[in-house]
Design a protein around this nucleic acid. Structure first.
Lengths: 128, 128
DNA sequence: ATCGTTTATCGTCGATTGACGATGATTTCA
DNA sequence: TGAAATCATCGTCAATCGACGATAAACGAT
């Protein structure tokens, strides 16, 4: 334990939560799926594909960008968005084991590890 | 409560978003992880593990329950919460392929398709 | 029957979200 | 140079979230 102040464990959960929250909206799901298909997309194409105002779509793109899931580069008068595959992969590498553990029968007392991370601490506390 | 009819495509994304949003909070991540370890937990144990008020924890449990990720049964004067492994598995079965596609190089035009894989349609529109 | 424990719900409050229109910046095209 | 197009940002508004304390409901134990 003795975890030093270097890595705040709680911080990891906040990043994870941030990314999950970014995906947790129908419009943003549609956006990332569209980007997965086309590879790259201009903002306008996305706007035309949805029934949302341009400014609203821009906001959603901002949320996804702040979560690190996509990158946006300015190309002339338009913006080209692209999935950040590395971040998506990192998210997958974190979510998969998590869901696997949640779906597993019941870890029960594991000899190894665990929890030690011990400090899930959502807001500050820790699940003893 | 209105559970749905049968298959509205947009509805599927809303359920997915609902479940992702349920997981997208540090406190709720801590709760489901705790449940994964212990198998079942009374509300009080969870409350003591976190630094949140009892009513707040109860709210988080409600969110998770409404998302179908956990089940709560009343046992005497206390409530026993348990992960709904089936729902978690279903979520995994939906999220994993999604993340895999997002992290993939770029599907590009598969056969013909106009991308119509369906109707992403977030709020109503559709990505043409 | 009453008390104490446990949990859900209610009401409130501040902060955030999601939507929109309007505006402004930037670049291309005529 | 001017007009049109594209996109981000700002301000606003209603709705939701997240937290809390207080209260009520259900049950076991006295």
């Amino acid at each position: 334990m003795a975890m030093n102040v270097h890595e705040i464990p709680a911080e990891a959960d906040e990043v994870l939560a941030l990314r999950l929250r970014a995906l947790a909206h129908p419009a943003r799901l549609a956006i990332v799926r569209a980007l997965a298909q086309t590879g790259r997309c201009q903002c306008g194409q996305i706007v035309r594909g949805l029934t949302l105002a341009q400014s609203t779509v821009s906001q959603h793109l901002k949320v996804l960008k702040e979560a690190g899931l996509i990158t946006g580069t300015i190309e002339g008068p338009r913006s080209c968005y692209c999935l950040d595959r590395a971040t998506v992969q990192a998210l997958a590498d974190e979510v998969l084991p998590l869901l696997a553990r949640l779906a597993a029968p019941a870890a029960e007392a594991e000899a190894s590890e665990t929890d030690a991370p011990g400090n899930p601490d959502p807001r500050a506390g820790a699940l003893a």
